[in-house]
Computed example of a mutant assay.
Amino acid sequence: MSPRQVVEEWVRRFNAADAEALAALYHADAVNHQVTQAPVAGREAIREMFAREFASADMRCIVEAIHDCGEVAALEWRDPLGLRGCGFFTIRDGRIAFQRGYWDKLSFLKLHSLPLD
């Protein structure tokens, strides 16, 4: 799959809240760094992160744009509650090697009525 196709599939699996299928898109030693929290390293740790997050909030990703160049794809997104953000995916051999996401954690917590940490 091309970087764009990987990100499109990532969105599909994210919106299905399927942590197992989502984690399968990552390399075994991938890193997911949402800048509001510490980086998560390894496919299994990434799977666990998504499982925890899907259990705590009803999250959906509405694609605003996907830009790709070489092995990198950028995803501009919003959710149904109005939160906006972007993610950058480095794709190697059809799998995510590195992901970095930018979004406002305080707004997310408030929109989902979650405790402020």
Rank of each mutant, 00 (worst) to 15 (best):
H27N: 03
A28G: 03
A28K: 12
D29I: 04
A30D: 02
A30C: 05
A30F: 05
A30V: 09
V31N: 01
H33T: 03
H33M: 06
Q34F: 12
Q34D: 14
Q34L: 13
Q34Y: 11
Q34H: 12
Q34E: 13
V35W: 09
V35G: 00
T36G: 15
T36E: 13
T36N: 13
T36S: 14
T36A: 15
Q37A: 12
Q37D: 09
Q37K: 08
Q37H: 09
A38E: 12
A38Q: 12
P39K: 09
V40K: 10
V40Y: 03
A41K: 14
A41N: 05
A41E: 11
G42P: 10
G42M: 10
R43G: 06
R43P: 05
R43C: 09
A45G: 10
A45D: 11
A45F: 10
I46E: 06
I46F: 10
I46Y: 08
R47N: 08
R47F: 10
R47P: 07
E48C: 08
E48V: 11
E48N: 14
M49T: 15
M49P: 04
F50T: 08
A51G: 03
A51Q: 12
A51F: 06
R52K: 15
R52M: 15
R52G: 15
R52S: 15
E53R: 10
E53V: 03
E53P: 00
E53M: 11
F54E: 07
F54P: 07
A55L: 01
A55H: 01
A55Y: 00
S56Q: 11
S56V: 04
A57H: 04
D58K: 08
D58E: 05
M59V: 15
M59H: 10
M59S: 13
R60Y: 02
C61N: 06
C61T: 13
C61D: 03
I62L: 07
I62T: 02
I62Y: 00
V63S: 09
V63P: 03
E64D: 14
A65W: 10
A65E: 13
A65M: 10
I66R: 08
H67R: 13
C69T: 12
C69M: 12
G70K: 03
G70H: 02
E71W: 00
E71K: 07
V72Q: 05
A73S: 07
A73V: 06
A74K: 01
A74D: 00
A74H: 01
A74C: 04
L75H: 03
L75Y: 04
L75A: 04
L75K: 04
L75F: 05
E76H: 14
E76S: 12
W77C: 08
W77G: 07
W77N: 06
W77A: 08
R78T: 09
R78C: 08
R78G: 07
D79Y: 02
P80F: 04
L81S: 01
L81D: 00
L81I: 00
L81T: 01
G82V: 07
G82N: 06
L83Y: 02
L83H: 01
L83C: 03
